[in-house]
Simulated assay, not measured.
Amino acid sequence: MTGRTPSVRVLLVEDDQRVARVNRDLLERDPEVHVVGSAATCAQGDALAQALNPDLILLDVHLPDGSGLGLLRHWRSVGRTTDVALITAADDEASVRLALAHGAFDYLIKPFTGARLADLLARHRARRLPPAPGPALPRLDQGSLDRLLGVQGRGVEPLPRGVDPHTLERVAQALGGAGEGVSAEDVGERLGLSRVTAWRYLEHLVRSGRATLEHQYGHSGRPAKLYTARPGPADPER
Rank of each mutant, 00 (worst) to 15 (best):
H215V: 00
A136C: 09
T228S: 13
E14P: 01
P135W: 02
G232M: 07
H215W: 14
H166R: 04
R170A: 12
N53D: 11
D25L: 15
S183H: 09
E185H: 13
L56S: 04
P135N: 05
D146A: 15
A229I: 09
A20N: 07
L149N: 05
D55W: 03
E214W: 01
E203G: 01
A224W: 14
A20E: 06
E28I: 05
A104K: 08
V84H: 00
V22H: 06
T5A: 03
R210I: 07
G188Y: 03
T212K: 04
L58Q: 09
Q216C: 05
K110F: 01
T197W: 02
H124L: 03
L71H: 01
W199I: 00
Q152V: 09
E28P: 11
A184E: 06
D92Q: 12
R210Q: 15
H74P: 01
G79E: 07
A172I: 01
L145E: 11
L26Q: 09
D60N: 09
G179D: 03
L140E: 11
Q50G: 14
S77E: 14
A118Q: 13
P223F: 10
E237M: 03
P223C: 10
A224Y: 11
T41A: 02
T113I: 00
S194L: 07
R97M: 10
Y227V: 10
D186M: 05
L202N: 09
A136T: 15
P130R: 14
G155L: 08
R21F: 04
D55E: 03
S38Y: 04
A99L: 11
A126Q: 12
P236A: 14
H74Y: 11
L120M: 09
E203A: 12
T197F: 06
S183M: 06
E237W: 12
A234F: 00
L12Y: 03
S38H: 15
P111R: 06
L149A: 14
P130G: 10
V36K: 04
D141Q: 11
A184P: 06
P133H: 01
A39N: 07
Q173R: 15
A89I: 12
G162V: 04
R21T: 13
H102I: 00
A101C: 02
R80T: 02
P233T: 01
Q173M: 10
L98M: 13
P131K: 05
D106F: 02
G188Q: 09
L56T: 04
R24L: 07
L205F: 05
A172P: 02
A39F: 13
D83R: 06
L58F: 04
T5S: 02
G143M: 03
L58G: 08
K225V: 00
V151P: 00
R128I: 08
L98S: 11
H34F: 10
L129Y: 02
G177A: 14
L26W: 15
R207D: 14
P233V: 02
P160A: 13
G3K: 07
D146C: 11
A115K: 10
G114H: 07
A211T: 12
A40I: 01
N23L: 15
T81Q: 14
E93Y: 05
G37H: 08
D91M: 01
A90S: 15
I57A: 01
P31M: 09
L148Q: 14
H219K: 05
L27M: 10
D25M: 10
E237R: 14
L159W: 08
A94I: 12
